[in-house]
Design a protein around this nucleic acid. Structure first.
Length: 624
DNA sequence: TTTAGGG
DNA sequence: CCCTAAA
């Protein structure tokens, strides 16, 4: 029997020699304050704390998501941004490994709404109510709640005058990641230093508020930091508006003209919390190493000294930690509510920045993916894609990293690939179809032969998908791209020729399968070069287009497509529109007298004058 | 989703 | 061709 409780400083001797699972809500100010350590314990029948045994911890590790309630611990967690909703894999890992359930503390620093109890409740109503633990849950819940309440009371009594650092406040990612110890020594030196500096009242308070064990570690209920202090009001109440504005500037690196004291306070508090939040994600596992603690800490500390968090915040935005939504799922939905509600109003108040364009976003995320090791677990919005692939597994690699993979069906077999967010710029269906091996039909064909350099075998395509997904550069692919890109016009030319020489309808009727055998799959090369999806217009297509325009009128592109290009999946209505536009340009570019298209561009295809005439004719008819 | 336009 | 804004 047992319940979940956190560690307490004055009981720490209990844990010596035991496998301990601790989680430190690492915040930037941990450099200033001290980290809070959490140990995995359970409460035995007589109420005493029993450290978790290796077995229990193992159990946790093994089951990962199926957390036995008697080894579960709850901690408070600071998160302020909407961005934090994303689950960072590292965090996720830590969370699951150490069996931490994390409460979500929104920007405003919820007074104590996010109390231990509430977190527990959230958990109980969520995670622990899963089938796996059902038999014990209810009983545990009650006990846990009682216990937690008790501890809370204790905490309140002891108040905030708890001095200094727990000697053993080391950071352990999980029971297996003991290599933090050394770091920690360093840390503490730093921390204490910082504490003396008192660079800024606010920062100090912030740090205290967020994570400093100064106040919490020695208290009998050091399970969570004293969140109540996070509130800006406490720190900022006495400052005049001007000072608040100044603080704001220092915090966010920009001026503000807002005179609303309340707004400023909240804003600042939020910013500080955000800043404090940073190092949570410094606990990164990359390449089988833990990164970011020491070096980053120093940097961050310096940054704080100088700019009171400007950079910190920036960093944070990027490295934003995450709620444990994906881990705990439902467990903290309620808290989100606060977060988004209060916070969104803040956002509204703040100057609104134009949402970046999609491309921008995409490129950003690409970069991020590379830099952050596939942090994103954002499900693709592309349904067509998700039909073909889905997240199949979340596996923990030996490097202590959570790897989310998905299965991609390729020509009948499935390949497991790292799951990354797919934002496709081109027509997904074609690609998919092609990749699925639907392009066997022979025709195209002759054209294909001409462009054989560009056509990939199914296996090649497969590997390409994999490569794309894993953001790796294919060795062979770029070469082909180069070729394709530079010779595109030539190829077009060839295609056109071929097309013209054969019966156009032949190609046109070759059916979807061949049509989808697209030439170019857009792909990035070093994230920069993209090969455009390109397909030369054949004469027959042009003729059809003209016919369609004459039939349905220019502008009825979807109609035209439906009726005349139904077999050409690669011609979208937009394509038709574009082509028509080009045709118009061409037709009018050539002076009517110059009936024999004289001003042909070098690489462009020869369009029969007749067609051009017809185009002009139609255009004039349309314009009337 | 489709259209219209800019790039 | 690609990307968006509008409708």
């Amino acid at each position: 029997m047992g319940t979940v409780v956190g560690t307490v400083e004055d009981r720490r001797d209990m844990f010596e020699g035991n496998a301990q699972t601790r989680i430190t809500p690492f915040s930037s100010t941990n450099q200033i304050g001290n980290p809070v350590a959490y140990k995995l314990v359970r409460v035995s029948g007589d109420g005493s704390l029993v450290p978790a045994t290796d077995e229990e911890i193992l159990e946790v590790n093994d089951t990962d998501m199926h957390i036995p309630s008697d080894t579960c611990q709850t901690i408070g967690y600071l998160a302020t941004d909407e961005e934090n909703v994303e689950v960072d894999e590292t965090d996720m890992h830590i969370a699951s490994d150490a069996c931490q359930t994390i409460g979500y503390l929104p920007a405003e620093g919820i007074p104590s709404r996010l109390s231990q109890i509430e977190s527990s409740e959230a958990i109980n109503s969520g995670l622990l109510h899963s089938d796996n633990v059902q038999p014990y849950t209810d009983q545990y819940n009650e006990e846990m709640l009682q216990k937690v309440e008790q501890e809370e009371r204790l905490e309140n009594v002891h108040g905030s005058q708890m001095p200094s650092t727990p000697a053993d406040a080391n950071i352990q990612c999980s029971n297996e990641n003991n290599f933090f110890e050394e770091d920690q020594v360093h840390h503490e030196a730093l921390l204490q230093d910082e504490c003396k500096m008192n660079e800024s009242d606010m920062m100090e308070r912030c740090s205290n508020a967020v994570a400093s064990p100064k106040e919490t570690a020695l208290s009998a209920a050091a399970q969570k930091p004293d969140f109540s202090r996070v509130r800006g009001e406490i720190c900022l109440d006495n400052l005049p508006i001007k000072a608040l504005q100044e603080t704001f500037r220092a915090t966010f690196g920009r001026d503000t003209t807002v005179k609303d004291k309340t707004w400023l306070k909240r804003r600042i508090a939020m910013g500080l919390i955000n800043s404090c939040d940073v190092p949570t994600t410094n606990l990164r596992v990359k390449d089988n190493k833990l990164i970011g603690n020491q070096e980053k800490s120093n940097d961050v500390t310096n940054a704080i000294r100088k700019e009171m968090g400007d950079d910190v915040r920036a960093t944070k935005m990027k490295d934003a930690p995450s709620s444990t939504d994906h881990v705990n799922g439902h467990s903290n939905g309620g808290n989100h509510y606060y977060a988004s509600e209060d916070y969104s109003s803040e956002q509204r108040a703040a100057k609104r920045v134009r949402k970046p364009t999609r491309r921008y976003i995409e490129e950003l995320s690409e970069t991020d993916d590379k830099q952050q090791n596939d942090k994103s677990v954002i499900p693709s919005k592309d349904q067509r894609l998700s039909e073909k692939s889905e997240v199949r597994s979340i596996s923990v690699s030996s490097g202590k990293r959570v790897t989310v993979t998905r299965m991609v069906s390729l020509a009948g077999s499935e390949i497991e690939v790292p799951y990354v967010s797919h934002v496709r710029r081109s027509r997904p269906r074609e690609n998919i179809m092609a990749l699925l091996g639907c392009h066997s039909s022979y025709l195209e064909d002759k054209a294909s032969a001409a462009e054989s350099n560009l056509n990939l075998s199914p296996s090649q395509l497969s590997s390409e998908v994999v490569n794309r997904d894993s953001v790796e550069k294919s060795a062979s692919r770029p070469v082909q791209n180069e070729f394709a890109t530079s010779d595109e016009n030539n190829v077009e030319h060839i295609l056109s020729e071929v097309d013209q020489e054969m019966e156009p309808e032949h190609i046109d009727s070759s059916g979807n399968s061949s049509d989808e055998n697209n030439i170019g799959v857009p792909i990035m090369q070093g994230g920069a070069l993209r090969r455009k999806h390109h397909r030369a217009w054949t004469l027959s297509e042009i003729a059809k287009l003209v016919e369609g325009v004459s039939k349905y009128g220019a502008g009825k592109w979807s109609e035209i497509k439906k009726h005349l290009f139904s077999s050409h999946s690669y011609r979208t209505s937009v394509d038709l529109k574009d082509k028509w536009r080009n045709l118009l340009k061409t037709s009018f570019a050539q002076s009517p007298s110059n009936s024999v298209g004289s001003l042909k561009k070098h690489g462009s295809m020869h369009i029969p004058t007749q067609i051009l005439l017809r185009v002009r004719e139609l255009a004039e008819k349309q314009s009337q």
